Amino acid sequence: MPALVIHDWPLPYEERLAARPSAAIDLVVIHCTELPDMTLAREFGERIHYEGSRTGNSGHYYIDTDGAVSRFVGDLRVANHTYSYNPRSIGIELVNLGRYPHWGDSRHQEFSVPYTPEQIASLRALLGRLRHDHANLRWIAGHEDLDRRLEPAKDDPSILLRRRQDPGPLFPWDEVVPESGLERLKPEP
């Protein structure tokens, strides 16, 4: 397997994100961008969502469909990627359509695009690097495992949908978890 190359591409507000020690990191959260490409993922990551801190929502790492890895936020900064789990976790986003552009439409909730072999190979290499760099890293979870909040569907508000369903049913957990040396974290609902 070729050496993992990480392209540093810090978000403009990275320095405004809270700092943390490596010892605080015990969890990796796997996400799906639910966007068509890295360009839109970057655009979304640069948007300011929190006026007080002038920061936005972003994972730490992004893995494109060709396996290229970009770091938007350094490990020792708290990125805003998973409600209630940010201070202890590293977020890894895999570029994938997910439910794009119908996230909130109850008629379009299927994930239909598989993750590429290149993405999974890069993810496995990145997980190995993170385990080496952070001694307390023990857990891995999907965004869907941790954020179980519901919201009304845009097409029919009487239907409640899970806000987060990524990385979704096409993510190869059985291929990734056993090799990672991490345990799957699935909190009680």
Rank of each mutant, 00 (worst) to 15 (best):
Q165P: 04
I48T: 13
L137G: 02
H132K: 12
M1K: 12
G98Q: 02
E93A: 10
G59F: 00
A125M: 08
G98Y: 05
W9N: 13
T55G: 08
D75Y: 05
P157Q: 13
R47W: 02
I63T: 07
G52I: 04
R163F: 08
P167T: 08
V5E: 14
E51Q: 14
W103L: 14
D37V: 07
I6W: 10
Q109K: 09
L182R: 00
S58N: 10
H60W: 05
V73H: 08
W9Y: 14
P157T: 09
A41F: 01
D26I: 01
A79W: 01
V69C: 11
R42I: 03
Y85R: 02
I120C: 06
V5A: 14
G98A: 09
D105T: 08
L27K: 00
I120A: 06
I90L: 14
R149W: 06
S122G: 10
L130P: 00
G91H: 03
G74C: 10
L185E: 03
Y115E: 06
N80L: 06
L127E: 01
D155Y: 11
D174Q: 11
P167M: 05
S158F: 05
Y115G: 06
A125N: 07
H31L: 12
L130Y: 02
V73P: 02
P172Q: 07
L130I: 00
L170I: 04
G52H: 15
A18L: 13
I140Y: 00
P187D: 10
I6H: 14
S53C: 10
L4A: 08
L146D: 09
R129Y: 13
P2L: 13
A121D: 11
N96L: 07
T55Y: 03
Q119L: 08
R71Y: 12
A135Q: 15
R47H: 15
G67R: 07
E175S: 11
R47S: 14
A41S: 12
L127W: 00
A153E: 05
